[in-house]
Design a protein around this nucleic acid. Structure first.
Lengths: 154, 154
DNA sequence: GGTGAAAGCGAGGACCA
DNA sequence: TGGTCCTCGCTTTCACC
């Protein structure tokens, strides 16, 4: 992984539809070496896939919330069960075990407050070990990106 | 936007490299109508772009944190300034104005705790109006997805 | 919604510096 | 590593039904 690879990652994060020729031009590389590097990044698992980005509002997902969850039964079984549920629910965009006041922070989307409330009450609140749930509903999206900054060296 | 469009969005979120032929086959559509629908979704802005997904660890971004920020000067100028800084910093993946205890929740990545600390102290803490900063560092990534669930109707 | 056709592109291979 | 062909089959994107 050198600086050309990192530039390639930056470009592909911005626009995955770039052809090898267009990509190569931006990197001062011709088609084949460009293609070889790209394939290498894919085979190594640095590039994990290509996806279309969708406007959340356009598909009716008007609500996004951060959910802070505290767990009061600290057994592996409770954690495994909770995490399996979270992974299986498509409305949960992300879930992280975190330091600080909460045990888990989740990002959840829903079409409106009703649907969100349903999810909290009927799914999350029902899980064993869930001691408290605190929601922070997004009032405004200041920034939303699924692009990582690529460090100059790694 | 009908159910075929929604299925198309689901498929393209999973794999943006699908050709119109492959996509059409899954949707029981021939190439041209498939391409027309796809183009329509792009032109409407439902599909906002295509991007490569990258393994955060592979590029050395070992740390992800949620940052809860409280603001004590509630003027438009303070807010605009803060939001502009946040938008300009690539290590900030997302920033939302939220309900609840915090005014803003940010998602921030960094290569390690040192780099994260630097960002908090040298960038965020320096902004006027920032009253408190509370970090929740991710200990484990239970789920991380940048795919939205596509509702059956919208 | 569907066909067909022109032009372009992608995935490789072969081979050289 | 990087570069230059070259090829085959597929893709995109058009005009037209």
């Amino acid at each position: 992984m050198d600086s050309i690879d990192r530039s390639m990652l930056r470009l592909l994060q911005d626009d995955a539809t770039l052809s090898n020729a267009a990509l190569g031009e931006k990197l001062s590389l011709s088609v084949t070496p460009c293609w070889r590097r790209r394939k290498h990044l894919e085979d190594q698992g640095v590039v994990t896939g290509y996806q279309a980005n969708i406007d959340r509002r356009a598909i009716g997902l008007d609500l996004l919330a951060f959910v802070h969850i505290r767990i009061n039964i600290h057994s592996d079984k409770t954690a495994d069960n909770f995490e399996a549920v979270v992974r299986s629910r498509p409305e949960v965009l992300s879930c992280h075990k975190v330091t600080g006041d909460a045990d888990y922070i989740l990002q959840v989307v829903a079409s409106d407050l009703d649907a969100y409330g349903d999810f909290i009450e009927r799914v999350l609140r029902k899980q064993t070990g869930v001691a408290s749930i605190q929601s922070s509903v997004a009032l405004r999206e200041v920034k939303f990106s699924s692009k990582f900054p690529i460090p100059d060296e790694s």
